[in-house]
């Protein structure tokens, strides 16, 4: 490995002992960061150092580290999931940063996503929106025959465009209003495209929109910032679609 694959970075990391504690930025410098590391691996390296020094490691969420679980949630240099579009924080590599760069790391900030510790926030609000209506009714028991319910290719493709949502919450984090409209819109749009979701179609959109409001998310002002930070590129057509679904559900 050549020395050009090593960079020095300064980190400003949000530290907060607990939900009620006052948070602050703590500065760290890593002298030799391998540019082939992912952003989370870089944090692992820092945490190992902290533990060796008998200091409290930085808490951050992660699980799959391959961009599919939606656990990782870091606001990197002011942007949820960092500077690369269509990339979750765990898929972001250190080669996208410059030698000597200062990188700030903050948690998602929203009333509906209270901070648990450091960079970890409670995203159960999303789960409650899902329990309010993000399901379909099916008979349990044997798996049904795969082709029992025909679905047209355009419908299944369109449902898939929305089903790719990994529920990370970057849309809320990036939204100047902390609105959860992209998340809720994606779920509503996905299920409204499929025959399996049809019986709950009207109830679903009303219940999910209600829950989104109860959780304390803000209104949508059509900034489309959510689309720009979404690691899977869900378009705000999901939101427009949720609105038409809602009107149809209320009017008849």
């Amino acid at each position: 490995m050549s020395s050009t694959d090593l960079i020095k970075v300064h980190l400003k990391v949000w530290r907060q002992d607990g939900p009620q504690a006052k948070g602050f930025f703590e500065d760290y410098t890593l002298d030799e960061v391998n540019t082939h590391m992912s952003f989370l691996e870089m944090l692992d390296v820092l945490n190992e150092r902290l533990m060796k020094d008998k200091k409290e490691p930085i808490e951050f969420d992660h699980d799959c580290r391959e961009g599919i679980c939606g656990s990782c949630n870091l606001v990197i240099n002011g942007v949820p999931h960092g500077p690369e579009m269509l990339t979750a924080a765990c898929q972001l590599h250190m080669r996208h940063f410059k030698d000597g760069e200062t990188i700030t790391i903050e948690p998602w900030r929203a009333t509906a996503f209270p901070i648990i510790k450091d960079l970890v926030v409670d995203r159960n609000a999303f789960d409650r929106i899902m329990s309010a209506g993000g399901y379909i009714s099916v008979s349990t028991g044997n798996a049904p025959d795969a082709n029992a319910i025909p679905i047209s290719k355009p419908d299944s493709d369109s449902a898939m465009d929305y089903a790719v949502c990994i529920g990370c919450g970057a849309c809320v984090a990036a939204c100047p209003n902390s609105s959860a409209s992209l998340f809720t819109g994606a779920k509503v749009s996905q299920l409204s495209r499929l025959p399996q979701g049809a019986p709950e179609r009207k109830k679903r959109v009303i219940a999910m929109v209600d829950q989104m409001e109860k959780e304390g998310f803000g209104d949508c002002s059509n900034f489309a910032e959510c689309e720009a930070v979404c690691p899977v590129g869900i378009s705000i057509t999901a939101i427009a679609n949720m609105r038409t679904e809602y009107v149809k559900a209320v009017l008849g």
Partner: peptide, 22 residues
């Protein structure tokens, strides 16, 4: 409502650009 939905602002915040209309 937007103020209530995020009482503590980001210390560093930037628009991602691209499709954003911010």
């Amino acid at each position: 409502k937007k103020k209530r939905a995020r009482p503590e602002n980001y210390k560093y915040y930037k628009s991602q650009g691209g499709p954003s209309k911010q």
